[in-house]
Design a protein around this nucleic acid. Sequence first.
RNA 1: GGUGGGGUUCCCGAGUGGCUAAAGGGGGCAGACUGUAAAUCUGCUGGUUUUACCUUCGGUGGUUCGAAUCCACCCCCCACCA
Length: 429
Amino acid sequence: MSIYSELQARGFIYQETDSENSKRLLENERVAFYVGFDPTGNSLHVGHLLPIMAMRLLQQAGHMPIVLVGGATAQIGDPSGKQTARPILTKDDVAANAECLKQQLSRFISIADGKAKFVNNIDWFKDMLYIDFLRDIGSKFSINRMLAQESVKQRLETGLSFLEFNYSILQAYDFYILNRDLGCRMQFGGQDQWGNIVAGVELVRKLSQQEVFATTFPLLLDSNGQKFGKTAGGANIWLDVERTPVFEYYQFWRNCEDSEVEKLLCFFTNLPVDEIKRLAALEAPAINRAKEILAFEATRLAHGEDEAKKSYLAAGGKFGFADPAGKIATSSSVTAIKADATAGFDDLPAIELPASEFAGDGMWIIKLFTDAGLCKSNGEARRLLQGGGAYLNDERLTNLELKVTLDMFANGCVTLKAGKKNIKKVILA
RNA sequence: GGUGGGGUUCCCGAGUGGCUAAAGGGGGCAGACUGUAAAUCUGCUGGUUUUACCUUCGGUGGUUCGAAUCCACCCCCCACCA
């Protein structure tokens, strides 16, 4: 399958400036293309993954990814798709964040031996004179057209500063520079970037008389219309294990909705499309195997085969395996793992607490739930118990005054659960 | 710069002196049902040493036995005019 058909079949293509020529270009030439990232945080989250997976596919097909870090533009904040202006970052923040970004990206695309280029737009904006910019670039933009942009129109309702208004001009200029200096001929980005991206295509045409192309990805939403990549709780699922432990990362994918599995497998795994269609068409409860494969594959890409295996076994041990006999065919390496219900116990999320806490009268159960990180406050833990959602060693707790003592530990360990899915082992230190 | 309208708990949004930790909705959490799914129903949704106390209604100060609610000043947002 050609790379273009692959992208299309997997649902990556939402809008294109020139479908026919993009296809021809991607199929017949080695193309330098760029995707921009805002270094606004020190970790990527699942919401960033769609363009990353696209870059991965394109790179595997022989194309050259240029990762643009928006060091300059991050200091402005893109108003597209945002309700309100974003806080402005310092230069040091941006530099540190850019480094984290590069490191996390390296799990998905090859960055060694110049297989991918990293650029920072601060490099061409920092010495730019305002007058020059206005004359050379500003003159190419029509305010009338900019005002007609959907993203701008929306912000006009609530207010838009001149600073933010300039964002699309800066992004357009990025494309111009990358085309001029690195021969970049395509830009990919989120659907919300369309206006900015098209502005770039036009600017390149006006300034360089070059034809360049752009494609946007669909915006992923969950069933509630929220941006994809948040937990139910609204917290982001990060690629940084400090923020999102691997087990939780795995569980995020494992808990996707039935109706989403096919889409998610297409976007976030490397499995062939026809296999995905077959897996996603499985009847309940076998559909759960598709979710296991999704979780395993997505975790494998982000955290490596070993970590993915641990999470698979830990989750399977706790909740059961969807296809323990391995009857459902798949090209995923998950099939090689023996579905052993006890093997993953050690890899459940755990916290160590000093044994002295449990000596004598023991530790108050409410405090234990809070200290273990399962509840944000004692009040929340109290409510959890009152609502019947708290478990100690798989027994439902009702006594708010319970003290956890050393004799409740088996092999130096007790298991806490907040609800059916949030598990934490407490290990004596 | 002028005039008018606003800033309430995660979000939207009621509340115009005590009955207000603050209606209602959304979101979230938990329970039941299930397949670690969806839908549905139920409970909960500021903190603590929990029949009580503490913190919260843009900020500061004041009036009052008592303030999200009244007064003064300040900050910010929106609309129209300039």
